[in-house]
Amino acid sequence: MWVNSRATTIRFLILLTFAIIMAFPFWYMAVVSLEPNQLSLQYPPVLFPQHASFGNYVGAWQANNFAGYFMRSLYVSVVSTFLGTLIACAVAFVVSRYRFFGRNAIYRAFLVSMMIPGMTFLLPQFKLMETLGLLNHLYGLILIYTAGMIPFTTFLMKGFFDDIPLELEDAVLMDGGSKWTLFARVAMPMATPSLVTAVLFNFMGGWDEFTMALTFLQNPNKFTLPIALMFFQGQHSTQWGEFFAAALIQTAPIIIMFVIFQRYIVKGIMAGAVKG
């Protein structure tokens, strides 16, 4: 249907034009990051790098053991994304598919918890982390990130599970499959596109989180990447070239993840899952 080359061309051109506008601030960031000695922003504006070099990238990577921050952030984000997504999918699945005592209450409590600004919790959470002996531990950060992901992911995945037609699962039920089979073999594979979305969002959430990381970690050799990024912004002056270079380095893993994962956001996965 609609395979019309002229229509596709028009669609492509519109999307491309809009994409150029969208990419502009990002482009500008890249230009500044490639400019050596770019310690401040210029006027009149410079739209193309004039002395392009990767000096700022080398400088940013070498400053302050950037590699260490990078690896710690990777560890924290990967583990919390795995835990948070899996746990939330389980909740979303039963909330979407079954009636049971407390179903609405749980769903609404999750929803309401997202409506209270997280900043309010910072002091109580700090005391809680201290009481539980989780301060200054990366696994403490993992636990609190996981908890932070659960309401959002449950809400997101419940929406997707709701949109999946029931009939597709009936075959498995007829065969006498358990809820676990239904969840692991049918619902999750069918929800692959949304699962990918949830994983991308959650990973980014952990990867980008600054306030809790800085508040709950006390030892510089535990600090994560977003803290390192803020070091490029000094009290009185900011090294714009290195700041932007570091910010772009920070986006690299998510770009790679996105390019790999977005393949799964295509039609046909659902059909395959049902047949398989």
């Binding site: 700090f126 005391k127 306030t211 508040t215 006390q218 030892n219 510089p220 803020m230 070091f231 912004q233």
Partner: peptide
């Protein structure tokens, strides 16, 4: 001496939270 360098923009918040937690 253990040196802990913090980003300036967030140091006041960290001091206050840590004061509340007694650390």
């Amino acid at each position: 001496v253990q040196n802990v360098t913090l980003p300036y923009s967030a140091m006041q918040q960290k001091l206050l939270t840590s004061a509340a937690g007694g650390v």
